[in-house]
């Protein structure tokens, strides 16, 4: 690691102030992506602002029609929470597929979303459930939050505080993991909330998570795996690497979408 100054934030306001003051700084949540990157010296921020001790950022609660999860809530907590399991079982199941048990004990939902890794799981859930990302400054709908590869609508000193997931009638997530890293080679989240049907795909798109209108239309008519028969996404615009070509990813999107729909229906 390159040298950096370390600041422990007391609360969200403090964290935002520290970020602004430190200039070339990074917010440290669970650190499960950031710390390996620092260790490999692929980044060298002048300062880290640690929000690990900010209690107000943690917690899971049902508020009205929304399931609200604090940004510093660990994946393991989401995976095992009775509230999540009852309200949106697909979200708990998704959390249980992130990383490995030790990573889930440390990694956070806010960190994952802010990073917007094109193969991360949570962005699919946010987009697939039509979540709202609440920050230290404003509320951002998921459709406007994810801006492409590792890019989000977040400003430099803007901190995610909560994620609001509307509780759907049903939802499902299916993931085909990269055999090596276990990130999503392709992950598909589907949900139905009244007339709002969403299909969000992670791992496959060059620009990160995206929705598939054609599948959403088909599922609106008939929310079942069968309804997706014959619907294929095109390889163009999909990732291609040593693990999977764009063609294979396109195929997997179809398969995972059906599995997700089947688990939801």
């Amino acid at each position: 690691m390159y040298k950096f100054a370390y600041h422990k934030a007391k609360n969200v306001k403090d964290a935002a102030a520290l970020l602004k003051k430190a200039g070339d700084s990074k917010l440290l949540a669970g650190g499960q992506t950031l710390i390996p990157t620092l260790k490999l010296r692929l980044a060298g921020p002048a300062a880290l602002v640690d929000i690990g001790g900010v209690k107000e950022l943690s917690g899971i609660a049902l508020k009205g029609k929304d399931l609200v999860i604090g940004a510093m809530t660990r994946h393991a907590e989401v995976a095992t929470s009775k509230v999540v399991r009852k309200a949106i079982p697909a979200l708990a199941a998704l959390a249980e597929t992130i990383g490995d048990p030790a990573v889930r004990n440390q990694g956070t939902i806010g960190g994952s979303i802010a990073n917007n890794d094109p193969a991360a799981d949570y962005p699919a859930a946010c987009l697939g459930l039509g979540a709202t990302i609440v920050t230290s400054k404003r509320k951002i709908p998921a459709d406007k939050f994810f801006k492409g590869l590792f890019e989000t609508a977040l400003g430099d000193d803007e901190i995610i505080t909560e994620v609001h997931f509307p509780v759907p009638k049903s939802a499902g997530y299916a993931k085909f993991p990269n055999p090596a890293s276990r990130y999503a080679l392709v992950g598909v989240f589907v949900s139905r909330n009244g007339s709002d049907v969403r299909v969000a795909v992670t791992g496959a798109g060059e620009g990160g998570v995206f929705r598939v209108a054609e599948m959403e239309k088909a599922l609106q008519k008939d929310f079942s795996a069968k309804a997706l028969d014959g619907i294929a996404v095109k390889p163009r615009g999909l990732n291609s690497d040593i693990h999977a070509s764009a063609e294979y990813r396109a195929h997997l999107v179809g398969v995972m979408a059906k599995r997700a729909a089947a688990s939801a229906a």
Binding site: P179, A180, S181, Y183, I242, H243
Partner: peptide
């Protein structure tokens, strides 16, 4: 699962457990 991959320029592209399975 396993395979070490070099690209045509001789760059090792499986340099961690993220890509070497």
């Amino acid at each position: 699962l396993e395979g070490a991959v070099y690209d045509k320029h001789g760059q090792l592209v499986t340099g961690s457990y993220m890509d070497y399975c």
